[in-house]
Each structure stands twice: as C-alpha cells, then as structure tokens.
Simulated scan of single mutants.
Amino acid sequence: MTYQIYNGDCIKEMKKIRDNTVDLVVTDPPYNLGNFMKNRDTNLAKMRDNFFGAAGWDNLEFEDWERSMDAFLEQTARIMKKGGSIIIFMAVIKVETIIRLAEKHGFYYKTTGIWHKLNPMPRNMNLHFVNSTESWLYFTYKTRTGTFNNEGKMLHDFIETAVTPVSERKYGKHPTQKPEQLISHFVYTLSNKGACVLDPFMGSGTTGVVCKRLDRNFIGIELDTSYYEIAKKRMEETGDEA
C-alpha cells in the first residue's frame, strides 16, 4: 500500500494526477453553509470552539462555490477510471446542485443516502428537532455499476454510527471530521485491495487512515496546513497503535 498526501489547492494538485488512474473518490467538501449558518438563530458557535461556520473555508458565495465544485468534478472525471465510483458527503439542500454538476461530467447518479449520527450534539434540543443526519451521494463513472463488495448482503442507503470518537481526534480537531467506521464502510464496499482512492478534501486524514488499514493506495490533498499536518501524523502512525 502506498500513500501520497499534498498540502495545496485541490484543483491544482489534481491536475498533476494522470488520467484514468483513480478507482474511488471518497470526500467531504465544503457544504457552502458558513454564511447560511451565521445568519440563523443558533447557539452552535457557543457550544463548540471549532464550529465550521467560523472556520472561513465554508463562506463562499453560492456562485463561487458552484464553480469550485464544477472544477473539482471536471478533474475527478479526467482522473477516474471507467467504472470507478465517487462518494460525496453534502448538505441535503445542495444535493441537486451536485447531481447536476456530476452528470454534466459523465457521472451516473446512483443514490442519495443518509448518515445518521447516534450521538449528535443536542443543540437547541428544546426549540426544534436535533440535526442528526448528513447526506451522501453515490455516483459511478461512465457505467451504471461499479465495484460493490456487499458479500451477498443487502446494504441500505441509511448508515448509522456514532460521531468521531475522542480516540480519533488525539492528533488535533477538525470541525467536520468523519468517523473511521463510516468511511471504512464506503472504502471496503466500493473498492478492492490495491485500488487507488483519492480524497481531495482530506481534512485530518480519515480516508487515508482507513485506506492504509484496508490495503488501498491513497492520494490525499488538503489546503489547510494545520489539518494537513494532523493528517500526516495520523497516516505515519496508523498501524503503530498499541
């Protein structure tokens, strides 16, 4: 298993990847909710010191965010093997935009699924329903089916796990870090050993850690230097845990 991680803009770094070389993309790009959340009546910022809405990287105007997602999907199509797959985590109110852009670049829309957090933050629990879900979209490239290691089991598009445990944040915190259990589900099901998996919005490196454990090759890209360093440390020490 090999891994390569880069600290830089994902579009610039993706342009260095050869055509038709990636089997699977699993990624969690900005949801374009920063300004939206700031204008809502929420106490989230008070409850968590690394609230994503205050991070700065999720504050693009919609048109700018849409252009960035279009460029990301254009590069993904170029480097994706025919029959490859992509999982994109996304806010439900942006799902239609991602589907439209992905289909424009040759991706076949399979489904929109839900990740249900078993222990969500109970913010505003006495005012309205607690937000305990996030959406994910599943596409294949240039075909209507791809690798699907379900082992004869029926796999639902509804996945339940706890949020990221403290043990997976020991190298540092990322405001939207996904748990390894969740990412493992997609990497195992949608790729085989030795496959090349890309996460162009790598964050703190969860996809890379999972790939290393499951014997997949990994390419990760992260713009923020502090998160890149967390990912680098996690990747270096994965497999060395007591």
Results as ranks from 00 to 15, higher is better:
94 K>N: 13
124 N>F: 11
91 A>K: 12
157 D>G: 03
31 Y>V: 00
132 S>A: 13
33 L>K: 15
23 D>Y: 05
20 N>M: 11
82 K>I: 12
112 T>Q: 08
44 L>R: 15
39 N>C: 12
82 K>F: 04
160 E>K: 11
120 P>S: 06
81 K>F: 08
148 F>G: 03
84 G>S: 07
99 I>S: 02
139 F>I: 05
19 D>N: 15
30 P>D: 03
143 T>D: 04
17 I>L: 14
16 K>E: 06
60 L>N: 10
66 E>M: 10
62 F>T: 07
19 D>G: 06
51 F>W: 15
160 E>H: 09
138 Y>H: 10
57 W>F: 11
96 E>I: 10
63 E>L: 12
57 W>S: 00
136 W>N: 00
102 A>K: 05
80 M>N: 09
43 N>V: 11
150 N>H: 14
123 R>V: 13
41 D>N: 15
54 A>W: 11
102 A>W: 03
156 H>Y: 08
141 Y>K: 14
131 N>L: 09
29 P>D: 05
68 S>A: 07
77 A>M: 12
132 S>L: 05
105 H>V: 05
89 F>W: 07
83 G>I: 05
51 F>K: 08
106 G>F: 07
129 F>W: 14
135 S>D: 00
59 N>M: 13
53 G>H: 10
82 K>W: 06
108 Y>R: 13
139 F>N: 03
58 D>Q: 10
110 K>R: 14
16 K>I: 02
75 Q>C: 12
110 K>V: 09
78 R>D: 02
77 A>G: 04
58 D>T: 04
84 G>V: 08
145 T>G: 08
43 N>R: 15
138 Y>Q: 04
86 I>L: 15
64 D>H: 07
97 T>Q: 06
148 F>P: 01
30 P>R: 02
95 V>D: 01
118 L>W: 06
148 F>A: 09
132 S>M: 08
120 P>D: 04
118 L>N: 03
37 M>P: 00
161 T>A: 07
18 R>W: 06
84 G>K: 12
146 G>W: 07
91 A>R: 12
103 E>P: 02
152 G>N: 04
99 I>W: 03
17 I>W: 09
83 G>N: 02
161 T>H: 06
46 K>Q: 13
84 G>P: 01
138 Y>L: 05
116 H>F: 09
74 E>H: 10
72 F>N: 03
158 F>S: 04
128 H>S: 12
125 M>E: 08
24 L>F: 02
112 T>C: 06
105 H>P: 00
106 G>R: 14
39 N>E: 14
55 A>C: 13
156 H>P: 01
65 W>I: 01
45 A>C: 06
42 T>Q: 11
52 F>S: 11
22 V>K: 10
48 R>V: 14
126 N>R: 15
47 M>K: 15
137 L>P: 00
21 T>D: 09
102 A>R: 07
